[in-house]
Nucleic acid binder design. Structure first.
Lengths: 195, 195
DNA sequence: TGTTTAACTGAACATCCGTTCAGAAAAAAG
DNA sequence: CTTTTTTCTGAACGGATGTTCAGTTAAACA
């Protein structure tokens, strides 16, 4: 028996990606088998190879998709105003974006070492360009006398680490809304780099 | 042929732990095989079971050892002074301790999901008690009017995330000494929670 | 309608996995 | 020296792994 009723390429493809993302986030890339992903989709393992050349590409495509979405949404926001308002925009955007896709964030931060060297270089480059935007804001603020940080590169990484950490504890059912969380973190970021 | 010359329990035991820690940090728990660890030690896979009941215990023992060392060294420091000086001590200690054991930090933060539920609960409890100490400092500072944070629990997690993030970029061969890094982070932490 | 095409099955491939254990050999004890 | 004990080997266990592929079936097309 092959190809049971109601199966279509257009729905199976995305479902493979969704199942892989969810499983990779919960168990880790190396601990998830192709048969497990296939079972989640409701298909035999061999059928997955209609949608991905191999397991490694499945991971890479998820990560690149996440980074592309991050940079695309970021580029869509207007970057006007002075350094302080741009930093607030960046802070709120980062929290909102990351809290909306906890699985993709988890996979993108935890599975870097499971990428092949070439794939790793691609993801690393995308991440770098995101960090560079924040560092540019900090540098502008320092030049304008609005910020005071000893080292803009370190401050960039410190701020991003602090903001991304929100994904480890935030739960939708919790007592705080995303906007409230944004405001609490913005308060700390603003003071941390203030002149 | 068995038991080649120069093999001793006293040296093999620690060597198993060291090899496991290094490999888990570089490849991840699930991606490392017992045969790989054994090869690193220079022994056959079966011999590992003289030193650990199973692979899961190997991971758990590494994590518990790390957390025990963290709490023990923390307890050894005198916790005198006002909230500001205690926070500075905590900040500098956290950075120094974590930069000294990058592999253990990496494993302890990345492999939590590979612990059995019971083992996870143990590690989580230890981590919680470490976080509680920082939250206590923040609460005291708020009560004394020295700090101003909207939510001490969130501020605790934000500060720890920021500080632990240092392990992702710091390299011993880099341009900054550990003490310089401590000072840069302390400057940001101090301002972030300041009244 | 019949024919083509895309999607999927089910079995197979070689290889690796964690773990066990009888037996061998070196070190320690007497 | 001989005996005991500890440490390790080497083979084996059942099962899981990623990936391939000939064959089957449902959908799309003519």
């Amino acid at each position: 028996m092959a190809r049971t009723a109601g199966s279509h390429s257009e729905t199976t493809g995305p479902r493979v990606q969704e199942a892989a993302l969810r499983l990779f986030a919960r168990q880790g890339f190396a601990a998830v088998s192709m048969r497990q992903i296939a079972a989640e989709v409701g298909v035999q393992a061999g059928a997955l190879y209609n949608y991905t050349p191999d397991k490694q590409s499945l991971l890479f495509d998820l990560m690149r998709g996440h980074m592309d979405a991050l940079l695309a949404e970021r580029a869509a926001r207007g970057a006007g105003g002075d350094a302080v308002s741009r930093l607030e925009e960046f802070t709120r955007f980062h929290i909102r974006f990351h809290l909306a896709r906890p699985d993709a964030v988890f996979v993108s931060y935890m599975e870097l070492r499971n990428l092949s060297p070439e794939n790793f270089a691609v993801i690393e480059g995308l991440r770098r360009s995101y960090e560079d935007e924040l560092e540019g804001i900090l540098r502008d603020g320092v030049a304008a006398g609005q910020f005071d940080v000893a080292d803009t590169k370190i401050a960039t990484l410190a701020v991003i680490a602090m903001l991304t950490g929100v994904t480890t504890w935030y739960r939708e059912a919790g007592r705080l809304s995303v906007t409230e969380v944004e405001t609490i973190y913005w308060d700390m970021v603003r003071k941390a780099v203030a002149a």
